[in-house]
Design a protein around this nucleic acid. Structure first.
Lengths: 109, 109
DNA sequence: TACCGGTACTTAGCAAGACCGAATAGCGCA
DNA sequence: TGCGCTATTCGGTCTTGCTAAGTACCGGTA
């Protein structure tokens, strides 16, 4: 992970995870795998778990413990109503940012 | 400024300033004004100055002191070769991020 | 002269986010 | 027994942006 990426992820990683959770509940290990497949190759596992705890505390996801066939029990996170709302807010802010940046990029040429 | 925006700016504000400096040298006060016009209405002035100091230390800009008619001397910052390089790198990373997020957004529907 | 407002920059202390590394734990297989 | 994969937790560090306050220069006005 480049330093640039790391810093840019701040504030967006949360939205990324919520988005990835939207409609498809998942547990930490699974989310990490999903993200890696989707191109976020080097996101630290510890980071994902810390973030999941955070969004749980904020009440954006519901958590259910499900026994696993191959390891300790999984904590399955599903986006709830508040989470959906927050996700929408996230997309709005994200759109705002991308629009501004696109403007700047155009202007810089 | 919403908390979401603040967190999302982390890691991108630097690029925003470099981009805004690209081709048009400017001093802090001016940059703040520019950004406000461009929609970043609530970026703290102190933040801009701190950031300018940082990018100067990293050698991404050249700084020249220019006397002002109405106040203390201005520190005019201009993007140098290293800064241009860094800016390109920033845009690459930014593009990567936006593509991934766009994917996620599509997938979530 | 004294003061105020606008211009311009600086600094100290704080909160939040992501990272790394290590630890804990369950399970199957050689 | 020990290795490797699954799965989660925790402590300490670095970077970033924010707030709030202060310094400094200038012109106009009372």
């Amino acid at each position: 992970m480049t330093k640039l990426e790391t810093e840019m992820l701040k504030g967006t990683l949360e939205g990324i995870i919520l988005a990835s959770l939207s409609g498809r509940p998942a547990y930490g290990y699974e989310i990490t795998a999903r993200l890696r497949e989707q191109g976020f190759s080097d996101i630290a596992e510890g980071t994902i778990y810390a973030l999941l705890v955070r969004i749980e505390k904020r009440g954006l996801v519901d958590v259910e413990k499900v026994p696993s066939e191959k390891g300790p029990p999984r904590k399955v996170h599903s986006l709830n109503a508040r989470g959906e709302e927050y996700l929408e807010e996230f997309w709005r802010t994200w759109s705002f940012l991308t629009e501004r940046l696109e403007q700047l990029r155009e202007g810089g040429k």
